[in-house]
Amino acid sequence: MGLKKRIYVVEDEADIRRLVTEVLEGYGYEVSCWASGREARAAIQRQAPDLCLVDLGLPDMDGLTLVRELWEDVRFGVIILSGRGGTSDRVLGLELGADDYIVKPFEPRELVARVNSAIRRREQLSGAAATAETARARFGPWVFDLGNLTLTADDGRQESLTAAEASLLLMLLKAPKRVLSREHLQGPDQDRDDFPYDRSIDVRVSRIRKKIEEDPRAPRLIKTVYGAGYLFAGDVTWLR
């Protein structure tokens, strides 16, 4: 894994903090824990992590508020840890920009798999950004910059993307006019027995549409092919 990846855990339950630390350190991660959102904010200002795990039931703030704030920092990913297992809670978490959602109690192997996946996704994006042929793409009035996870419009407007959104958009842009199934867009290493993969993909597509479509309710760029998946209908030019 090279240099140890830094994981921040924002969780008020000491038993959960100990479990997460023990499991992730056993897989070579460097783990730091905080029991409140305020402490986590201060730590992130001093040094950003590679990934942040956030409990929704924090003592000093709603964890969703912290997730929304952290989403604006594209330097690292965010995974929600929560005892709230309803579909609406998970969808809301993803809509606010989280890369993933883990329901407590969880199996250690599930935690490791989700963390590995989030870290690997960002590494793959960094690798793709280093390749001139896939670093920047123009479609419609937008330029997609994989290096800094942004979309810039011709009029100067800029939208930020999470790593999960950027990864999904990259797959669509690299295969324009082709239908890609939800399984393909989800990736081969995702386990969604407790939260069907298609919902997480649908949420991310919805978020991307809100950023790039004139009317997200009648999308012209990312089309839904019912029963099959999604298709990017626009023309794509890769910029060097």
Rank of each mutant, 00 (worst) to 15 (best):
K5H: 04
I7Y: 08
E13N: 06
I16F: 14
L19A: 12
L19S: 11
T21R: 12
E22Q: 15
G28P: 02
E30F: 11
V31W: 07
E39L: 11
E39R: 13
A40Y: 05
R46D: 10
Q47D: 09
L53V: 02
L56R: 06
G63I: 04
G63L: 07
V67S: 03
R68I: 00
E72I: 04
E72R: 15
G77Y: 13
G77Q: 14
G77N: 14
I80F: 05
G83R: 09
G85T: 06
T87V: 11
S88T: 10
R90K: 15
L94V: 11
G97V: 01
G97W: 03
P105A: 12
F106D: 09
E107R: 13
P108C: 13
R109V: 02
N116D: 09
R122N: 04
R122W: 01
E123L: 09
E133K: 09
T134V: 12
T134P: 08
L149Q: 14
D154R: 07
D154G: 05
L161P: 03
S167G: 07
L168D: 00
A175F: 00
A175W: 00
P176K: 04
S181K: 06
R182H: 03
P188C: 03
D198N: 10
K211I: 06
I212Y: 06
P216V: 00
P216G: 03
R220Q: 13
L221G: 10
V225S: 12
A228P: 00
Y230P: 08
G234D: 05
W238R: 12
